[in-house]
């Protein structure tokens, strides 16, 4: 039983981890807590709905599933396209709202602007797609039985693998490419980065692209395992914040370990508290981290 909870925790933690990467980077580099970040997950998931609808019209559609997964090659294309579309959405929001406010007012103004943006994005989806849940595919998927009596969905295992690939790719980007090193420099000291010749505006674009792309992937993969609802991302907002704060703002590995820790805690918590209170677990984690180690596991003390 406990093995099953651990497996479930790791699998749902992978979604949180992917979502938290972008949130953590925005908190560090753009220096504000973006309450609309979770809506990027939702929009990513719904962009994939559009992608599959278009793909169905031009033929191919959802594709022939590659056993044991519920999806075929079109899903990989969908991940790329939705990542690009979600990045465009994030960059548009940056130019329309956040960049303008940043010039005019303090960073807390950005925080409540992100409140407004979150509200807009979420309810626009209700207007466009309706409040009823949607599914990518009506095909049923059967769980795999692992040793120890643990049941997992093949799609979730794929997600875990995909998360590992994304994290390795980001690690290489941050430590090997000049853009990645510049991003870490901007996170630490924007003025010094600027006088060294780093175009901070360009780095900010990269932050949005990375954050939105990871969010889109998380959203699509989450949509694959549950039904799609306009509240999909919003329900993950506290877990994302818990992961980002636990890991420490700006830390890639912090966000990943934070995400897995949140997933595990949520799933293990049902052994001691009623399932209905599970959504409160990330909040308790946030309080504990803020009280004992506000800089997070991998953050620097301010």
């Amino acid at each position: 039983m406990i093995l099953q909870h651990i497996a479930d925790g790791l699998l749902s933690g992978a979604i949180v981890a992917l979502g938290a990467i972008g949130l953590s980077f925005t908190m560090k580099i753009l220096r504000f807590a973006n309450f609309s970040h979770s809506e990027l997950l939702t929009w990513g998931a719904y962009f994939a709905v559009i992608f599959f609808a278009v793909a169905a019209v031009i033929g191919g559609g959802y594709g022939t599933p590659i056993a044991p997964f519920s999806f075929g090659w079109p899903l990989l294309a969908a991940l790329l396209v939705t990542a690009a579309l979600t990045s465009l959405l994030a960059i548009a929001l940056h130019h329309l709202v956040f960049a303008r406010l940043n010039r005019m007012a303090g960073h807390m103004t950005m925080v409540f602007a992100s409140f407004g943006v979150a509200l807009l994005l979420r309810h626009l989806l209700v207007l466009i797609f309706g409040p009823a849940p949607l599914y990518y595919s009506s095909a049923l998927q059967f769980a795999m039985l692992l040793p120890g009596g643990v049941r997992v969905m093949p799609d979730q295992v794929f997600l875990l693998g995909l998360t590992v690939v994304v994290v390795i790719a980001l690690h290489l980007f941050l430590t090997r490419s000049r853009t990645g090193i510049s991003m870490r420099a901007v996170a630490e000291n924007p003025d010094l980065a600027r006088v060294s010749g780093v175009d901070v505006g360009r780095i900010v674009m990269w932050v949005w692209i990375i954050g939105a792309s990871c969010a889109a992937v998380a959203g699509v993969m989450y949509g694959l395992t549950v039904q799609l609802r306009p509240e999909l991302g919003f329900s993950l907002l506290l877990p994302l914040f818990a992961a980002a704060i636990l890991g420490g703002a700006g830390s890639l590995y912090g966000a990943v370990i934070g995400g897995l820790a949140v997933g595990l805690s949520e799933n293990l918590s049902v052994m001691i508290i009623p399932t209905t209170y599970k959504p409160a677990v990330p909040f308790l984690m946030i309080l504990l981290v803020l009280y004992f180690r506000p800089e997070g596991l991998f953050g620097e003390r301010r």
Binding site: M27, F32, A33, F35, H107, M108, V111, L237, L238, F241, I245, P279, A280, P282, F283, I286, L287, L290, P294, R302
Partner: peptide, 15 residues
């Protein structure tokens, strides 16, 4: 920091 207050109070409302 201010942002943490925002996140924590948001969390308490959800809870």
């Amino acid at each position: 920091r201010d942002e943490f207050l925002a996140v924590a109070t948001f969390g308490i409302a959800v809870t």
